[in-house]
Write a protein that binds this DNA or RNA. Structure first.
Length: 549
RNA sequence: GCGCCCGUGGCUCAAUUGGAUAGAGCAUCUGACUUCGGAUCAGAGGGUUGGGGGUUCGAGUCCUCUCGGGCGUGCCA
């Protein structure tokens, strides 16, 4: 509908002067008195056309008010054009919402662009924590939204199952295993993983292997520990993610990348490009050529690659797999790292504009008003499972999505535990459940929408009813904003507003009035559309729509 | 030092990408159920958008300076 108005304005502008500027917008104003839609076309064109904005606006208004679709075209302020549309257009749109059902708001906007969204990518050294939960809620919702409007998104989890930390993991498990079998371990190493889950893993390992492992060579034993721990922790993480309704299309293993020789490949490309050199027994990447502050080590003096190498190799595979857009969802402590990565992409002559990095800011966990210090090493972290136990999937997902990624997040554990009206997700779900119950009651009163003739939508004459339709029509532009800016939080605000409008409407008007069957049916039709839009929005955030609460 | 992110009512956050009177929730106060679900609704108070300057018809948004807070700046990952 916006584009229709936009085109109508263009046609009017052509009549005035062909040298107009089409860089104006058509928007839905915040203030109801400003009409259904408004445009700044006259303001933008004042310079080009060498006319006063008000005069341009007047010409456009005169031209467009001849059309029957426009109930009124008014000029306001310095030269804004405010449009009011005929109700028949809204009835048609309302019908479209109901008929499209769960496809409403979907489109071919993304033109099948292939989008890789890498998120969470937590180390496989322990259970997922609340930081991963935020990334999970964010990445999965972005996926759902992009999928809905015609992109081809792909979800990937990068598993750092090789390297130093995995050795530490194996050693940590070994210590727990020894303890379990009566060995006294005097000083638990500081750098080892201290979490309780390793004790559980040790006892699981013991039931499988008994004391057999003590008879192996140290090397074999640690390898067994490594494989066992990685596998068990992976399952643990998948299990938590299933509870959170977050899923992946691919788990990319660093170990696999290494075994396939991709690291060497990446290194040789860099060498061919003349971007590497040897110094102090190490191999350096001359990243300063590409805007980095200093050159970075690729191969350490001990012959092992730094973390940068597998990361470059991994991103090389992202490009090679033919994605149009590559999105990395990272924690804020990675931004120093990304400049190195970008330098490498430049050195390999890859299109840097394809790679986007979204930084999710930190989460402060608040308990009794105090910040809970989280430390992986000390094992003092709140896990995703604990969070789900306490607040449930729906509230947790809403809570995380409700904020833009770049904002810091204070997660008040006490507040989140409360299953009360303080939690906005209940407000939205309640609207859905309430509509459901009204529709059920309507059936009992023998008001069936199946017999409803859409011609009777003209019974919907209240401005509140038209406003509900207008709000629902916003969905597709909200989804575009969410997708283009990689900011799903707008959808959370949107569904909350829509639910609010419905609650107000419900309180003000009686929907089922047995003496006015046609009006009742028209209103039932309206609220069934609202229910549909709420359900779609919640689904896109991974939140359920319960029929009863 | 240098780089990145953030600063909006008491608290947590929005603001359709530069639009008209900066909006919600929580908290506080006042009201509304014999009626479709009160997990709701109606209403009130609360703001120099950290501060100064600039760009223009128009700035929370862009530029610049400045003050706070967070993070980064490893031959750790």
């Amino acid at each position: 509908m916006k584009t229709k108005i936009y085109n109508d304005i263009i046609n009017s502008l052509i009549k005035i002067n062909s040298k107009f500027n089409d860089n104006f917008t058509v928007e839905i104003p915040n203030i109801v008195e400003h009409g259904d839609f408004s445009s700044n076309a006259a303001l933008i064109n004042a310079k080009n056309l060498k006319m006063k904005p008000i005069d341009i606006a007047q010409k456009i208004a005169d031209d467009l008010s001849k059309k029957k679709e426009y109930k009124s075209v008014e000029i306001a302020g310095p030269g804004f054009l405010n449009f009011k549309l005929a109700y028949s257009l809204y009835y048609k749109e309302l019908q479209g919402i109901v008929e499209a059902h769960d496809k409403y708001g979907s489109s071919n906007y993304g033109k099948q662009k292939k989008v890789l969204i890498e998120f969470i990518s937590a180390n496989p050294t322990g259970p997922l924590n609340v930081v991963s939960a935020r990334a999970g809620a964010y990445g999965d919702s972005l996926y759902r939204i992009m999928n809905h409007i015609g992109f081809e998104p792909f979800r990937e989890f990068y598993v750092n199952d090789a390297g130093n930390q995995v050795d530490i993991l194996a050693e940590s498990l070994e210590i727990r295993y020894r303890e379990l079998h009566g060995h006294v371990v005097e000083d638990f190493p500081f750098e080892a993983y201290h979490g309780e889950y390793l004790k559980d893993l040790a006892s699981e390992l013991s039931t499988v292997e008994g004391t057999k492992l003590f008879h192996m060579t140290e090397e074999d034993r640690l390898e067994r520990m490594r494989i066992f721990a990685l596998d068990a922790i992976h399952k643990m993480q998948v299990n938590s993610l299933n509870r959170f309704d977050v899923h992946f299309d691919n788990w990319m293993s660093e170990k696999k990348l290494r075994s396939e020789g991709i690291l060497e490949e990446a290194l040789s490309y860099l060498a061919e490009a003349g971007c590497t050199y040897d110094k102090d027994d190490a191999v350096f990447f001359s990243s300063t050529k590409f805007g980095d502050e200093k050159d970075r080590v690729l191969i350490k003096a001990d012959g092992n690659p730094t973390y940068l190498v597998p990361d470059i190799a991994y991103h090389l595979t992202k490009y090679n797999r033919g994605f149009d857009i590559i999105i990395d969802v990272l924690g804020p402590d990675h931004h120093g790292h990304v400049s190195k990565l970008r330098a490498a992409m430049k050195a390999l002559e890859l299109d840097g504009s394809k790679l986007e990095v979204v930084y999710l800011q930190h989460i402060n966990l608040l308990q009794d008003g105090e910040v809970v210090k989280m430390s992986k090493r000390a094992g003092k972290i709140v896990s995703m499972d604990e969070l789900l136990d306490e607040v449930g999937k729906d509230a947790a997902r809403y809570f995380f999505i409700n904020r833009k990624p770049s904002a810091h997040l204070d997660f008040d554990l006490e507040l989140a535990k409360k299953k009360s009206s303080e939690n906005p997700v209940f407000y939205c779900q309640y609207a859905y459940a309430r509509i459901n119950s009204i529709l059920k009651k309507a059936k009992k009163a023998k008001l069936s929408l199946k017999k409803f003739d859409v011609k009777n939508l003209k019974k919907l004459k209240k401005i509140d009813e038209i406003n509900l339709v207008k709000k629902m029509m916003d969905l597709s532009s909200i989804l575009k904003l969410c997708a283009d800016n990689r900011e799903p939080h707008r959808l959370a605000a949107y569904v909350h507003e829509l639910a609010g409008m419905f609650h107000k409407y419900y309180a003000k008007y009686k929907i089922i009035d047995e003496e006015k069957a046609e009006l009742s049916l028209a209103r039932l039709y309206l609220i069934s559309a609202v229910q549909n839009v709420i359900s779609i929005s919640l689904y896109l955030m991974g939140i359920s729509s319960p029929k009863k609460m």
